Simulated scan of single mutants.
Amino acid sequence: MKSSLLEILSMVVNMKRLKIVVGMFVFLVLLGYGVSIFTDTAISRGNSIETAEFDIAISKDGKRFYNELKLFEMSNFLPGETRKSEFQIKNRGTVEVKKLTITFKVRNYEIRMSPSEKAVDSTPETGELGKWLVLKAIHIEGNNITINQTLNTLNGKTITLPVTLNPRETAKVEMMFELPEDAGNECQTDGIDVTLRLDASQ
Rank of each mutant, 00 (worst) to 15 (best):
V13S: 13
I111T: 10
L161G: 08
G32I: 04
N76T: 05
E50V: 10
N148G: 02
M175C: 04
I58F: 08
E110Y: 00
M15V: 12
K157I: 11
L154M: 06
E117H: 04
E73C: 06
E125D: 14
L78I: 13
G127H: 00
P167N: 02
S48Q: 08
L161K: 07
T170H: 03
K131P: 00
R107W: 00
M24E: 02
L28K: 01
I102E: 14
V12P: 00
G46W: 08
L133V: 05
G62D: 01
G142R: 04
G156W: 02
R17V: 15
T126H: 10
D190I: 05
L69Q: 08
V134L: 05
S48F: 09
K70Q: 11
I147P: 01
F25H: 06
N47L: 13
E186H: 06
Q202A: 15
R168V: 13
T150W: 01
N143T: 04
L179S: 11
G80V: 08
V173S: 03
P162N: 13
R83Y: 10
L196E: 10
T195W: 11
Y66V: 11
A119I: 11
M15H: 00
E73V: 06
N143W: 02
L151F: 13
D40I: 03
L196Q: 06
R107N: 06
V26D: 05
N152M: 07
L5R: 04
Y33K: 02
A183P: 00
F38D: 14
L179Q: 06
L165R: 04
V134N: 01
E7K: 09
G93I: 03
E174A: 14
A119Q: 11
Y33N: 07
S59T: 00
L31R: 06
F77G: 00
T150K: 01
T150M: 02
I56G: 07
E178L: 13
K157T: 14
E169T: 07
T189W: 09
K2R: 11
I159K: 02
N67W: 03
G62V: 03
D40W: 02
M24A: 15
L151A: 05
V97M: 09
F65D: 03
V21S: 11
N155H: 11
L198F: 15
T158L: 08
L179E: 06
R92W: 01
I58D: 04
G156F: 04
A171G: 09
D55E: 13
D193V: 05
A52Q: 03
S48G: 06
T160I: 15
L18C: 04
D121A: 12
S114R: 03
E68A: 15
V173G: 04
N47D: 13
A119V: 08
F72E: 09
L135A: 08
E186Y: 04
E86H: 03
K19S: 12
I159S: 05
V97Y: 01
I49F: 03
V95T: 10
K157S: 09
G184S: 12
L31K: 05
I43E: 11
K98S: 12
G62T: 02
V106T: 12
S44C: 10
V134E: 04
I145S: 09
S44A: 15
I43L: 12
N47Y: 08
I102T: 15
E128Q: 10
F54K: 04
I159T: 09
L198N: 10
T123E: 13
S114F: 09
M1D: 12
L71C: 05
T94M: 02
T51W: 00
G23C: 07
V97H: 00
E169A: 14
L151R: 01
F177G: 01
G130D: 08
